[in-house]
């Protein structure tokens, strides 16, 4: 086994920013281990020149599986493509960023290959000639140094753990390959898609975000959040759980599948603070958490936490900020 394969995800015809960051980190790791790094891209109607540009982010070769079966963004056909790439490439490590698709695809690949899998990796180190990851645990209070005993190791990195640069403008040779698809991998069919509408205020630009989660109780709970955000001259953000439940629009969602935000002030109201939310807002300047559960993980990474009833605290906060005008 030799070399590092990086699954690079295509979103809206372009390589996902998260994948570029992982590819660059893999290139640093590959240099330290003396292993070449190859980018694996799965999709349909992919452009060779655009894929070759991954050479500018550290890939020595770009291997492209271009097939209608890979157009839907469903993970299982991607497992087949990665397994085909592994058959010819015999890679020692597989890396991918933690999108929903990539995480599912790496899980399937690890099971298919009997490979050890580490998820939520936040650092990649070369130690003793092998990859040793740092995997965050226990609410990010500890970093476990995880390595592999299997011939192939699979790593899913935490979203946003590795920021991408603009690249060096280089390019790499593109090689196309044809995956062998399994029947069960093609059994899940995409029957509909609603694009996330991008209406409403741009939460990425707001200096203050007041965010609501399931702790608000219901959709009506957002009225107090909106008032508070307006008092601060800021915008409203929401967690995946409340967006999925239909309480607030997708365009306001912060987290792994939503936006990544870095406001000066982030006030989390009724948000427990699961890792999928944290990765979207941990770069905020000051983090405030209001939650009735004193054990909520959000208190582990807030600067100022209030254990109490947000129904009384938030309106009072709004009045105090309004009074300061």
């Amino acid at each position: 086994m030799a070399g590092i394969a990086v699954l690079c995800e295509v979103q809206g015809g372009e390589i996902a920013k998260g994948s570029l960051g992982v590819l660059e980190e893999a290139a640093r790791l590959g240099a330290a281990l003396g292993e070449p790094v190859e980018a694996i891209v799965c999709g349909s109607g992919l452009d060779d020149a655009a894929m070759g540009a991954l050479g500018g982010f550290g890939a020595s070769k770009v291997r492209v599986a271009d097939d209608a079966a890979l157009a839907s963004g469903i993970a299982q056909p991607v497992v087949d493509a990665c397994a085909s790439a592994q058959e010819s490439g015999q890679y020692r490590y597989w890396l991918a960023g933690a999108s929903i698709m990539s995480a599912d695809a790496m899980a399937g690949l690890a099971a298919r290959l009997g490979a050890g899998i580490v998820i939520d990796a936040v650092e990649l180190h070369a130690e003793g000639g092998a990859l040793v990851t740092r995997r965050s645990g226990l609410g990010d209070s500890v970093l476990a140094h995880c390595g592999f005993t299997t011939p192939v190791g699979v790593v899913v990195t935490r979203s946003n753990a590795f920021a991408a640069t603009e690249g060096n403008g280089g390019s790499a040779p593109v090689e196309r390959f044809s995956p062998t698809f399994k029947a069960y991998s093609q059994a899940v069919q995409l029957v509909g898609h609603e694009d996330a509408e991008d209406s409403g205020p741009d939460i990425g630009a707001a200096e203050v975000l007041v965010a609501g989660g399931r702790g608000l109780g219901d959709a009506a709970g957002f009225a107090a959040i909106e008032e508070c955000a307006s008092a601060f001259g800021g915008a409203v953000a929401a967690t995946r759980a409340v967006v999925d439940a239909g309480w607030y629009p997708y365009s306001a969602q912060v987290g792994q599948t939503g936006k990544t935000v870095t406001p000066k002030l982030y006030i989390a109201c009724g948000i427990s603070g699961a890792i999928q939310h944290k990765v979207g807002m941990q770069g905020s300047g000051t983090i405030v958490a209001i939650n009735k559960d004193k054990n909520a993980p959000i208190f582990d990474y807030a600067d100022f936490g209030i254990v109490g009833d947000l129904n009384t605290i938030v309106p009072k906060l709004t009045e105090l900020i309004k009074a300061r005008g």
């Binding site: 580490v118 965050s136 995880c146 299997t150 983090i287 807030a302 209030i306 109490g308």
Partner: peptide, 26 residues
Amino acid sequence: GTTVGGLSKPEGRGDTIVIEDDGSAA
């Protein structure tokens, strides 16, 4: 297939102040 060879402390955000609301939290 995976080993845990050691543990270390991540860089924290620094001090967290957590208070219980006694009516003056805001």
